[in-house]
Computed example of a mutant assay.
Amino acid sequence: MRKSEVSSTLTVYHDGQFWVGVVEHVENGMLSVARLVFGAEPSNEEVYTWVLERWTSLRLSAEAEPVGPRVGRLPGNPKRRAREAAKAMRQHGSSTASQLALARERERSKEESRSERAARGREEARVRWEKRHEKRRHRHRGK
């Protein structure tokens, strides 16, 4: 039986306008991400309630990124590492891999909506042409 490693992280930060949460889900070395907007600053209880009630309905990115192997302990002072990690989170919000995955997910959804919009436009044009054609046939029948 093969052992699989699963880990999920929710990072909440202020992006200048809204409070945003980024979920990073690593399963078998592949990273999937999701971004959610809280709006006003959520309290710890609100975040905890959100995780309990809505975690299962979370839509993670379809495209997964490979993540390097997890190294056990990082060298150096743990307090300094925590301080530097907190500083990086305040500046960037989330990891670079998750930012790239979110950008790809945005591009994919943009492409999907563009193709759906084009198909809808073609269908509407076809319906308009059929109505015009039917109206023309109806006039020529003399009624």
Rank of each mutant, 00 (worst) to 15 (best):
G142Q: 08
S32D: 04
P66K: 04
A85F: 06
R104P: 02
S94A: 13
N77K: 04
V6T: 15
V37M: 07
G93Y: 04
L36A: 05
E130M: 13
A125N: 04
R2Q: 12
R73A: 15
A125L: 10
K110G: 15
H25Q: 14
R136S: 09
A64P: 06
T96M: 12
W55F: 10
R128P: 02
R108P: 01
E134H: 12
V33E: 03
G72R: 12
G121C: 07
S113K: 15
R54S: 09
A85Y: 08
R128Q: 14
A34M: 02
A85P: 00
S43N: 04
E107P: 03
L60K: 03
V26G: 01
R122S: 12
G21E: 00
T9F: 11
R35N: 03
G68Q: 09
E41H: 05
M1E: 08
E130A: 12
V67T: 07
K87Y: 10
E53W: 01
L36H: 07
K3F: 14
A62Q: 13
N44R: 13
A97V: 03
A86P: 01
G142M: 10
H133D: 14
R117Y: 09
A85L: 13
V127C: 06
V67K: 06
R141V: 11
R141P: 02
T9M: 11
E116Q: 14
K135Y: 10
H138T: 12
E130S: 10
P42V: 02
V127Y: 07
R35K: 11
G76M: 04
S57R: 05
E45H: 06
D15S: 04
H14V: 03
G21P: 01
R114A: 13
T9K: 15
A62G: 08
R70L: 08
E65M: 11
D15E: 07
R108I: 03
E45C: 02
G76N: 05
S98P: 02
V33C: 07
L102W: 01
R54V: 01
R139S: 15
R120P: 01
R132Q: 08
S109I: 04
Q91G: 03
R128I: 07
N44W: 11
W50D: 00
